[in-house]
């Protein structure tokens, strides 16, 4: 099935190469654009049968174009062709209705197969990309909670107070414990989280973006 295709990519050599490759396989290249703005402008002149977009570009890349055209009510099939796509980007693209995802380092013939699939009305997402997205959607939100799930309520409270910058003595006063007991809890936290210092604990908790600091600052 031959189609009129538009390609958007900020890498000129790849863009030219891809246009030549698709032309040599009988497809008609409607236009090639090197930026999001240019692509959206060219889209207003006329829609292709299929849009091939790079994800990593300035001004939001392929996701921005996909979002814009879907918001305008267009149902043109879209294939993302990229070197790297983060799992969360894949999930967002699927939500926005992307039809195919192909990695640039895959066999060029895979792209031809993907185009055929998409033009036939099917979805075609590279298994590696899909696998990463699935793993992310299953494990990512849980993993942060899991780290803290090993802590008891008291340890969680103490960890929160440490993140809030309190010293052992202040924590002991606030929790109604002795300083020695706080140290025992702290040692247990370090062991459970496999860390060695308060600094690591603070950084770990900060990077988790958890709601724990509120524990320390409420009073």
């Amino acid at each position: 099935m031959m189609a009129q295709i538009a390609i958007v990519d900020d890498h000129p050599i790849f863009l030219d190469g891809m246009a030549q490759f698709l032309s040599s396989h009988g497809h008609d290249i409607l236009f090639c654009a090197r930026s999001v703005e240019e692509a959206l402008e060219r889209m207003q002149a006329g829609e292709p049968d299929l849009l091939i977009l790079d994800v990593s570009m300035k001004s939001g890349g392929g996701l921005a174009i996909l979002s814009a055209i879907r918001n305008s009510g267009s149902t043109v099939p879209v294939i993302f062709m990229t070197v790297h796509i983060r799992p969360e980007q894949t999930l967002e693209a699927i939500k926005l209705g992307v039809d195919g995802v192909v990695l640039k380092d895959s066999d060029p013939n895979d792209l031809l197969g993907c185009i055929q699939q998409v033009l036939s009305g099917n979805k075609s997402i590279a298994p590696f990309v899909m696998e990463q997205a699935l793993v992310h959607s299953i494990s990512a939100p849980a993993s942060e909670a899991n780290v803290l799930a090993v802590l008891t309520d008291r340890e969680l409270e103490i960890a929160g107070l440490i993140r809030a910058g309190l010293r052992n003595r202040e924590i002991a006063n606030r929790c109604g414990l002795t300083e020695g007991t706080v140290k025992v809890h702290l040692h247990s936290i370090f062991q459970k989280l496999n860390i060695k210092s308060r600094s690591e604990l603070i950084i770990m908790m900060m990077s988790m973006d958890s709601e724990i600091p509120a524990v320390g600052m409420e009073h």
Binding site: I13, F14, D16, G17, Q20, F21, S24, V83, D105
Partner: peptide, 17 residues
């Protein structure tokens, strides 16, 4: 990787031609 992908596509085109 981008450059290699471009090279590969061009090679594939040439081989096809």
């Amino acid at each position: 990787l981008q450059t290699l992908a471009a090279l590969r596509v061009r090679l594939a085109t040439t081989i096809h031609g």
